[in-house]
Structure formats: C-alpha cells, structure tokens
Design a protein around this nucleic acid. Structure first.
Lengths: 202, 202
DNA sequence: ATCTTTGTTAACCAAATGGTTAAACTGTAT
DNA sequence: ATACAGTTTAACCATTTGGTTAACAAAGAT
C-alpha cells in the first residue's frame, strides 16, 4: 500500500534523533518521539521493535556522520599543518549543523562503553595508523618537535570538541552570553590551529 | 532519638552520588539509591523530599569539589607557567579520585543549562578576571605570544578534561585497552603542560 | 511512667512507560 | 468485486516509578 506518510521510517528516525540526542536514551520517551513524528506510538514498535533498537539505529546514524569528520585528520593526504587547519576550521561548521551530536555520542558511549566494539566492525571506522606514520615522518624530518601521533590526535580533538560539549560550563565561568560565546568559538576557527602548530613547529 | 545509622543523611548522599554520577538524573532510580544506602525508599523522601532535590544536593556537592581544582588556574598567585604545570599535573589525580564527576557536571549542565545561574550565586564560584589580567600582563611583558585569557583558559581545560570524558571514544580510535590508555594519560601529566607552554612561549 | 519528637518501615497509590493486540484502512494484484 | 499484503490506529496491559501514609520504634524531656 501507499504509506500515509511518504516515508514513515525516516520520519521516525528524524524525530528519534532529535529527542535522543537532546535527552539521551534514559531521558527519552517513546510517546514524545511518536508525537514529534506525528504518528501512533505503535508505529515505533512496528518499524523498530523496541526502544533499544530504535536508539541503536539513531546512534549508528550519528556516528556515521561524525566519522568522516575525523577522517579529515586521520586519512587524508594533506600536509600535517594544513590538515590541522582544515579540521579545526571545518569542525565548527559541523557542530553548528549538528549541535547535540558529539555530546550525544560521547555521553552514550560512557554509559555503554562496549558499544564501540560494534562500531569498530564497520569498514568506515576511523583508523589512526596512517596519521601516526605522518606524525612520525614529520618528527624525523625535523619539521615538528617530538610527539606521538596519539597525543597529537588527542590534543587536536580536545581543543576542538570540548568547547562545544562544555559550553554551558564555560559560559558560566567566562560569564559570557550565547552571542559572546559564539564570538569566542568563531575566533577559535583559526586560533586553535595556530595554537597547535605553534606548539609543535620546530 | 539515636539514628539506626550513624548518619543516614550522608549515607544517602554517598549512595545517590554513586548512582547519579554513573547513570545521570534520568537514568537513576530512587529504589536503587535506597538499596545502595541500605535503607527504605521512604527515607530518601524524608530527608530530601523529592528526587529533584536529592539530585540537586548531589550536584552541588560535586561542583564544590570541582571548583577548587579550577581555582588553581584562576586564583592562585603562582607564575603562569607554573600554574599550567601545576593544574595539569594535579587534575589527573583528581580525576582518578572522582572518575565520573567532570562528565556528570558537564552532562547535567547540558540538560539544564540554567542550573549554572544558581551555582554562580555561590561565593566560591570560580572567577576568571584575575587570570585574564595575569595573561594580559605576561603578553605585555613579552613572556608569551598574544592570546586572550579566555582562549588560554579554554585550551587548558580542553586538553585536560576531554581525554577523560571521551575516554571510551578515544580508546576505540586508538585501539587501546584500559592499561594502555592509562599510560597515555600518565604521559599527559607532564606533556600537556609543555604542549601549552611551547605554544605560547616567546 | 508517659508524653513528645525524630527516625524508620511496610504497604500502598496514581501516573507514566514500554510494549502488545486486534481491528481497520489502503493500494494492488487476481 | 475480492482477496491480499503492508500500514496505521485505538485500546489495552503489565511493570516500573516517584511519592505518600499510617503505624511503629527509640530516645529524651517532663
């Protein structure tokens, strides 16, 4: 038959994404997702069987969006400094489009750490080996100070991700309103990359 | 009368802390807290009236523990570089003692951002003004490159906090087990401070 | 001794919640 | 037209959950 909604399944996913990402698995209600999708609660179970399975579908979709961002650092062929600049600059655009996504992933991964195993099975799961070699190479060529690929990767991620995840906390400490904080984040688009490069450049 | 338990109230707070910090407000059950405290569920309401009020008591306690850590960067009189080294080194010890605390605060603050207003009323709420002056002074004296106190503060916090909050995610990317990741965090005790100082030193 | 205040418990309650079911609806194939 | 398959809904169900109540226990005050 022709569905009343063009594509009920994707409407459910869209509604579930919104609710789950803002309230987390435990804080979300099936009824709220159904309302947001404009359908009956039974439909959620018809298409996804259970809350858990609907949640996992949303989570996997979210991760699929984040992974390509990380690939910019890990897998691309660009020069190391360009990579750092490119990632830093593009990550903020990504977060503006998906404000709740990184926090959502980190949060739920903390509540269910073994979830990462299932993600790793995916072919698109980010792999750090190439980046490690690139860093090593830059160290050997005397372009940058000695640092391990792991630590540099953690540093790049930390400087870019935390300011968004901890935004309410930082707004409090800095006594900044939304607009002022947004200005700070805009400055970081270029500042963070230079901060990192300054630190490692020889 | 003499209470059956020496101090029921603090036993409740201790149990509630454990449960709330690991599962969050929405994911926690009053029954589980009561069980962990070894008392009847009605006692929770006798001492704290509601789940919300118990939660806020736990949250405020948690914040009271975190604030002094930040004061090490914001309010102490030490030299800027020493401050950075001191904070970085001591923060990891703090996190080992309270593994769920920073994540807990950031997470719940994201779900209830206006909570920060109530915290700011507290006399012990961290204030960044002094740190901003110190950074400005160091810039003017030509000790460090130009950078705003806000951005430097955000950078210090990010490099120290995210690796713990996003530990499951990083463990996945780096393909590191708990022990290996712990080694990386140990290295960071000194590496992070030098990373920051290298970046800003003139 | 008994009254009073505080602490504690078992039993209970109403609402919320994830999930199920049986019937109805709709387009398509026969 | 009728049968058939997938889709949708209203009503229902069992369990969970935060919260309440009434009775009880224990210690100090009178």
């Amino acid at each position: 038959m022709k569905a009343k909604h063009e594509n009920t399944e994707s409407e459910i996913l869209e509604a579930a994404k919104t609710v789950f990402q803002q309230k987390g698995m435990a804080g979300s209600r099936m009824q709220e997702i159904a309302d947001k999708a404009g359908i009956n609660k039974a439909m959620l179970h018809y298409y996804f069987r259970s809350k858990q399975m609907l949640f996992e579908a949303v989570f996997k979709n979210a991760f699929k969006l984040l992974a390509p961002q990380l690939k910019k650092v890990l897998d691309e062929d660009a020069d190391l400094f360009d990579k750092i600049r490119g990632f830093t600059n593009s990550y903020i655009s990504f977060v503006i489009k998906h404000p709740y996504l990184p926090n959502f992933i980190i949060q739920e991964l903390n509540k269910t750490p073994d979830f990462i195993e299932r993600l790793r099975a995916d072919k698109d799961f980010p792999n750090i080996e190439k980046f490690k070699l690139q860093v090593e190479d830059n160290v050997n060529r005397g372009v940058i100070k000695p640092i391990s690929g792991e630590q540099l990767f953690i540093n790049i991620m930390s400087l870019n991700i935390l300011p968004f995840i901890a935004a309410p906390l930082f707004k409090g400490f800095l006594d900044a309103n939304d607009k002022e904080y947004r200005v700070l984040m805009d400055q970081r688009k270029t500042e963070v990359a230079e901060f990192i490069i300054n630190s490692i450049r020889l």
